[in-house]
Design a protein around this nucleic acid. Structure first.
Lengths: 337, 337
DNA sequence: GCAGAATTCTACAACGATGCAAACCGGGTT
DNA sequence: AACCCGGTTTGCATCGTTGTAGAATTCTGC
């Protein structure tokens, strides 16, 4: 059995509360006593029982992070960043996968498992405006990555519309006019899809390029295979296009693969731009031009915001929205000119 | 404040212990009482405080999973599988990143944070034989992915030597003779590197192909960029080669990219085979032939083994080793013929 | 050498749950 | 009518820690 405060206390010949005081750096402990206790701690290899500490103090120093799935590189890299940032603050992270499923997202918000955490960072995909009520929870909650709706909690998110518009304008500036889009999802559940589509349309409108629905291909899950499937569909439609905007890198890469199988040269025949700036984007053939939505900042800010909420004592502050800056990363699949 | 057992009890007009009995499905509760209590639970939205439960019962229903970094797709996908499997058993998973760093791995094994978990699944990279003692820990521990050493705990791992040998023989069978290797790491810390190199050499020996050290390129971290760097180094050496065996997919993909930049055709000039069977391998250009080390099985078995250890009551059983079956997944970068 | 103030240490009560054992409550035996 | 016996319910101790309040000790100044 692991040693407890009392074991240490007995060995050191003090009361167990004194040991607790030593551990918590209570100022009024005589150096000699402290040394004695520390020796006993070392000798027994004592480690505090964090469960007991949490029960007593109400703080768990653990946060939950819920993403659709780690299988999607975007979320894997994001999760890695959140965990690394948490580690710096001495926090533990429990990771949950929702599969982007509304019911699982809602279930998570009500889960007793959250009683083991101080708060939750949620990347929702399935929930919609009708679920706003479910977000009014009695614990700190930060939404990461969406901002479609008027929801009663903090958001840390990216400039989806502006970034998509910039990506589209980038393609337009390089002379492309028939720009296909992969990842639209009319179900309207997935916030980013709608927002990025809006940015795309704004760019077209600003440049007097007509919007052509036959260039828009839907994809619900945003996996590599979805991008591939979408590109097959686009090719089957037999409409001309000279560029593709994938709503995420993974789909763009899947699409690029199919494109090249079909004999189209990238970027000569078709320019391809993605969204996310995954590690992988720099090493595909050709390397993928993409939008860096500011992930590192997103991860750190989401955690920072959550920690502020956790530390908050007085009356609840109104929800805040934090927006990351994006940049376009030029690579081979869509050269600037 | 969240409702407690006592709040529910007061509302239902029973003792708080009866509420506890209802929650724990204690058999001798009158249906009428049970209904009354359940109504009160619903009305208050009572959720058990898992910290308190853990403190009392000693079980946390949480396990820790430590991987080098989620940034590496292999570990991200693996982590996703472990979490999904845990979810099925009603377990929570806390994810830690060690960076493959020995000191952080060792620190983790001694971390008080583990007192919040029932056990640990560790994917060690940095530790060596001299650290065997550190693995003799007072909690359930399963090593996932390495089996270089004689360590006093359960291992769930892959057939590194056999799989690497099979991959090499696959290339040999397709007529390649100058097979380069990327990912060797003489530091000998990283078990897989040594084992896969051994498999490679065994295959060569079995087919009377001489081992040529100038075909072996080291890489310590196994990222995409490491594969790219290694391939640059190999090209600089200016030795002829007609195939490349990347010790993981990520490096193989990075290398393949450089190879094509340099004008070598894959697979005509150089066949490429990887190791891991990432999602991504099916969508690269060309798609990547690789070894599927049985990851899904590894993830499930690691968790299953850990759960068995956790459930274990009597004297500690001797450590076990579980080995996954591998398969070679033929794709374009290295056709069978 | 002693009062009074500081410092250092300790006792006790939580935190919210579970395990154990005892108490209760009817109906069937004797 | 006392007794026993399941099924049901309850009270108490406990898990390992921290907060509060007060007791014990040491220090200070005269």
């Amino acid at each position: 059995m692991a040693a407890t405060l009392r074991d240490v206390a007995k060995l050191a010949g003090v009361s167990f509360k004194t040991v607790s005081n030593v551990i918590n750096d209570y100022p009024h402990v005589r150096p000699a006593t402290r040394a004695k206790v520390e020796r006993a701690i070392a000798e027994l290899g004592y480690k505090p029982n964090l469960n007991a500490r949490s029960l007593r103090s109400g703080r768990t120093d653990t946060v939950a992070l819920a993403v659709p799935e780690l299988n999607l590189s975007y979320f894997a890299e994001l999760a890695g960043m959140v965990i690394a940032a948490a580690e710096e603050s001495g926090l533990t992270v429990v990771v949950e996968q929702t599969g982007g499923d509304r019911d699982r997202e809602l279930a998570l918000l009500r889960s007793p498992r959250l009683s083991m955490t101080d708060g939750l960072i949620l990347s929702p995909l399935g929930m919609g405006q009708e679920d706003a009520g479910a977000l009014d929870v009695p614990f700190p909650l930060v939404l990461l990555g969406e901002r479609t709706f008027d929801w009663p909690c903090d958001h840390v998110t990216m400039r989806n519309v502006e970034a998509a518009r910039a990506a589209t304008e980038y393609l337009l500036a390089s002379g492309r006019r028939r720009i296909a889009v992969i990842g639209e999802y009319e179900g309207e559940v997935m916030g980013s899809a709608r927002l990025r589509l809006r940015g795309y349309r704004e760019a077209l409108a600003a440049h007097d390029v007509p919007y052509d629905a036959s260039l828009v291909v839907r994809a619900t899950l945003w996996h590599r295979a979805d991008g591939a499937r979408a590109m097959h569909e686009l090719l089957d439609r037999d409409v001309p296009f000279d560029a593709v905007f994938g709503f995420n890198d993974t789909m763009a890469l899947g699409a690029m693969r199919v494109l090249q199988e079909a004999g189209r040269r990238v970027p000569e025949d078709v320019a391809v731009i993605g969204f996310d700036d995954l590690d992988e984007a720099a090493y595909s053939i050709p390397s993928l031009t993409t939008v860096d939505p500011g992930r590192e900042w997103l991860a750190r800010t989401a955690l920072g915001t959550l920690l502020e909420r956790i530390a908050e004592t007085g009356p609840k502050q109104p929800p805040r929205t934090e927006l990351a800056d994006f940049t376009i990363v030029e690579r081979e699949s869509a050269p600037r000119n």
